[in-house]
Amino acid sequence: MSVATPTVDELEDLLLACRYGDLEDVQQFVDRFGPDPLNDARDERGNTVLHMVAGNGHIETLEYLLRHVPPALLSARNDARSTALHWAALNSHLAVAQALVKLPGGPGADLIDAKNEAGRTPLGEAENVGWEDGAKWFVEVMKLEENQKGEELQVAEDAEDAEKIEVEIQDAEGQIAKMTIGQRPAGESSIPPSAP
């Protein structure tokens, strides 16, 4: 039994359903045409189904799509070289960003390092729009290599700042991004217990 091939109009309807988070329409599309056309659907700017749901924060539709598309689609770039994660960051959608990065078998934290045409990573987009929660989460899950050029870890030394760790990351343009992570609840020691 062969599966029907969607028309251009049906692919456009699919992209609109993803843009508006219409899970039922997306499911009906997959039921009719199978999951393969999900991989190739693009709008006039090269945006995929994942760009559409990620940019608009439709987590339920995203979770459905992630079960039906290959993990490589997470790395797909639009005409501006942005991934779906760039769009999630640009629009401050934390649950969506986490689902994209945490997908088993997907690119994982490597997505955070992808630069778009403007030279910004998803972390850079988050910082650019002032999305502190997202930027903090990106920094926490990034693959930071010790002594990597442009990155420096500073540990606070006085009691007042002992609850914070500041990370400085220098991007390709030489701009420094500072992020405070690892705040501990009041009363919890920042000094690890000594080994027996």
Rank of each mutant, 00 (worst) to 15 (best):
A54Y: 01
A54C: 11
A54R: 02
G55F: 01
G55E: 05
N56Q: 10
H58T: 14
H58K: 09
I59P: 15
I59W: 15
L62P: 03
Y64M: 06
Y64F: 15
H68D: 14
V69T: 14
P71I: 00
L73W: 10
L73N: 13
L73H: 11
L73A: 02
S75W: 15
S75A: 15
S75C: 15
N78G: 11
D79I: 08
D79L: 13
A80I: 08
R81E: 06
T83R: 03
A88V: 03
A89C: 05
A89S: 04
N91Q: 08
N91M: 03
H93L: 06
L94W: 13
L94F: 13
L94C: 06
A95V: 11
V96R: 07
A99E: 09
L100F: 04
V101H: 00
V101G: 00
K102V: 07
P104E: 13
P104A: 07
G105A: 03
G106Y: 12
G106V: 04
P107V: 08
P107G: 03
G108N: 08
A109S: 02
A109F: 02
D110S: 08
D110I: 04
I112A: 01
A114C: 11
N116D: 10
A118E: 01
R120V: 02
T121Q: 00
T121L: 02
E125A: 00
E125V: 01
A126K: 14
N128V: 01
E132C: 05
D133Y: 03
D133V: 07
A135N: 10
K136P: 10
W137S: 02
V139R: 08
E140A: 10
E140L: 07
V141D: 02
M142E: 05
E145W: 03
N147T: 09
K149D: 11
E151W: 15
E152H: 12
Q154F: 08
A156H: 12
A156C: 13
A156F: 10
A159N: 07
D161T: 12
E166S: 14
E166G: 14
